[in-house]
Nucleic acid binder design. Sequence first.
RNA 1: GGAGAGAUGGCCGAGUGGUCGAAGGCGCUCCCCUGCUAAGGGAGUAUAGGCUCAAAAGGCUUAUCGAGGGUUCGAAUCCCUCUCUCUCCGCCA
Length: 430
Amino acid sequence: MLDIQLLRTDLENVAKRLAARGKAFPVAEFNSLEAERKTIQTRTQELQAQRNITSKQIGNAKSKGKNVSLILAEVTGLGNELKQAETQLEGIQTRLQQLLFGIPNLPHDSVPEGRSEANNQEVRRWGTPHTFDFSVKDHVTIGEDLGLLDFETAAKLSGARFSLLQGGLARLHRALAQFMLDTHTQEHGYTEAYVPYLVNAESLHGTGQLPKFEADLFVVPHGEQGNYYLIPTAEVPLTNTVRDQIVALESLPIKLAAHTPCFRSEAGSYGKDTRGLIRQHQFDKVELVQIVHPQQSYAALEQLVGHAEKILQKLELPYRVMVLCTGDIGFSAAKTYDIEVWLPAQNAYREISSCSNCEAFQARRMQARFRNEKGKPELLHTLNGSGLAVGRTLVAILENCQNADGSVSIPEALRPYMGDLTRLAAQDKK
RNA sequence: GGAGAGAUGGCCGAGUGGUCGAAGGCGCUCCCCUGCUAAGGGAGUAUAGGCUCAAAAGGCUUAUCGAGGGUUCGAAUCCCUCUCUCUCCGCCA
């Protein structure tokens, strides 16, 4: 959510920066709502003040044993008028808020302008893609040939966009998550967290998935209490830990890491990445969240990307880092880096991590604050990044580490998590 | 799932219809006193808004005592609904 003060004082500039992300701000609608709000709010508060004064007079008079019927008669009409004004004000403020909740974050000045993915800029590259002296297979073929990856059975159990891993591949998947989590907690200073996978609407509202993106979520009805939602990312529970809180300055930065499944309905992505593990309704991810002092958030973003990169470096997987352009950053983000891993079978780099600084956008929705140097509450900055998407990392390993005989070499960093196994071969089902 | 108790400021805790944004304490900040330490004295100390102001300061004002609704001229206080926490019983990994 944007700061309404900013909209009141510098609407033109806000509209301009939103235009850079391809979002037209409804200036006229906002201005007329604001004008209306101003009139009605002033009127309401005047009436409230009048009521308060009169009520006090009644109290005073009564305690002195005076007759109050005269003053009482004076306030008779006030109640109705006040109630009407209050209702009207509430209506306007709801409309203003709804408008505001639908407006995305402003891009940071350092974000390159552009309309789409095509305008994202490469920041750096690490590693050299391997050249193969045989024709490479894609991860689906590799996994199925090994007898360890089974989409047909998954489709029977659930439907499209689910997968079943077995044997060494399932173990490799587990090993990856452990390895990532251990690296971040032991080398990068994150606190490991185990979090709820079902969250309430307030939490999703806090991080910005609601109210606009309900269609992307899986909803679980829960009796009369309303709905639970399956988390689309651990960013939601991790970031919302500070919702409605005022944290102490000394406790910053807060760095949290969690390994969770993520659930996305993938509405609107029909026909995209239908083959394989790239785009699933359920996938695992190790998520990094940082909650920091506003002055630190851009330094923290660089760090956060580095933490995610470190995983790929240890796994010796080639990648590049992209800075997303104004037209491609997500709703809550002010700046986003994507990390893209090399996939030989696609002969392309594909997204494996996304790291964003949301500045105060989420914190404002969540009322997540800290006591600043002057002891005053101030909004925090929140950041999140994948470190990394486990399923996609598995894909990258299968494809980058494949051998001519159909086996897959296990990166050295993972071997301690695999009982020192060096390769996955067809007989590894058990 | 059943029965009961509770939710008040950074924390503890008083407050059962009016002068209560809320006693008292703790903590924190500033000042005074004390040769040092310990102790003592005084003052201050919620948040989010609105209007005003070129801005800062200030001024005026509104809302907030778990949340929402109701009764009333007036609600922390009375009534209703919900949420959460605790205790006991049941069930369960």
